[in-house]
Amino acid sequence: MKSVFQAILLAATISLFSFQPSNAFKLEPISRTFKPVGSGSTQSYEIFNPSNERVAINISMVHRLVNKTGQESHSPADDDFLVYPPQILLEPNAMQTVRVTWVGESEPTQELAYRLIAEQLPINLNPPSALKGTSSTGKIKVLMRYVGSVYIKPEKVKPDVVLAGLENMQSPKGDAQLALTFHNQGTAHASLRKLQLRLIAEQGEVLELTPEQMGEMKNATILAGKQRQFRIPYPANLNFKPVKATFTFQQPD
């Protein structure tokens, strides 16, 4: 399969024609949790082509890196996984099972976070015409792209989130803001589902923030051992003075 894929990829690269297919594909599930050893170290994904044209799909694995402000970056992690098949030519209305096996560290001390990236490539599956006296200018661009969550979760790991910082700030435009820094001191990722956040003013006044006031903070994911800082508009009905805060959230089993 790989040699066939490479041959078609080469044909597309040297094609002189503009090729912009409208077909797409579906990947399920979008999130998987692996065990570092045993039967749980292999998981299956289903890729379905609902269109009337063949699609070419490439699958890769990357490390998931998230900084304090929530910006995500990736680095190659294909050596930590065995993906079969890593490239697919999927017929119209067909489905393909992809098996992914963890082959990295067998005894990690905390949960590890990765991404599975499935990309649709607009490859011209028809042979290119041979035109004399013309140079090759074909290009390949990714159309559909799925970025799935992958966690390698050893036994007895769990999140432990604390509010590590609470600071009054101003935006570049001078608007009053409140910066909250959460630190996941635990060994597994935390999802701030059904987050409830209460601010306590110096005078003892308590304000529970609404989901709209919390913005991207609600349902945010904080990876094991990492920090996330969120800036929200300072509540209009509180004086711009130092406040304290308490919070709760629902962490799924």
Score class of each variant (00 low, 15 high):
Ile8Ser: 11
Leu9Val: 11
Thr13Asn: 06
Phe25Ile: 02
Lys26Leu: 14
Ile30Arg: 00
Ser31Pro: 02
Thr33Tyr: 03
Pro36Arg: 12
Ser44Trp: 01
Glu46Ala: 01
Ile47Asn: 00
Ser51Ala: 04
Asn58Thr: 12
Ile59Tyr: 00
Met61Cys: 11
Val62Tyr: 05
His63Arg: 11
His63Tyr: 10
His63Trp: 09
Arg64Phe: 06
Arg64Ile: 06
Asn67Arg: 06
Thr69Asn: 09
Gly70Asp: 09
Gln71Ile: 15
Glu72Lys: 10
Glu72Asp: 11
His74Glu: 15
Pro76Arg: 14
Ala77Glu: 13
Asp78Gly: 01
Val83Ser: 03
Gln87Trp: 04
Ile88Val: 12
Leu89Gly: 07
Glu91Tyr: 01
Glu91Lys: 05
Arg99Leu: 09
Arg99Lys: 12
Val103Ile: 11
Glu107Met: 13
Pro108Asp: 12
Pro108Ala: 08
Tyr114Ser: 10
Tyr114Ala: 09
Leu116Val: 04
Leu116His: 01
Ile117Pro: 03
Leu131Arg: 13
Arg145His: 02
Val147Ile: 14
Val147Arg: 09
Ser149Ala: 15
Tyr151Glu: 14
Ile152Leu: 15
Pro154Ile: 04
Lys156His: 14
Asp160Trp: 04
Val162Pro: 00
Leu163Val: 09
Glu167Thr: 11
Met169Trp: 04
Pro172Thr: 07
Lys173Trp: 06
Leu178Phe: 00
Leu178Arg: 01
Leu178His: 00
Ala179Ser: 03
Ala179Leu: 02
Leu180His: 00
Phe182Cys: 04
Thr187Tyr: 03
Thr187Phe: 03
Lys194Cys: 08
Ile200Ala: 06
Gly204Asn: 12
Gly204Arg: 10
Leu209Asn: 11
Thr210Pro: 06
Glu212Val: 08
Gln213Ser: 11
Gly215Cys: 09
Asn219Lys: 12
Ala220Gly: 08
Thr221Asp: 13
Arg231Trp: 02
Asn237Ala: 07
Leu238Met: 04
Phe240Lys: 07
Lys241Gln: 13
Val243Arg: 03
Lys244Val: 12
Phe249Ile: 14
Pro252Asn: 12
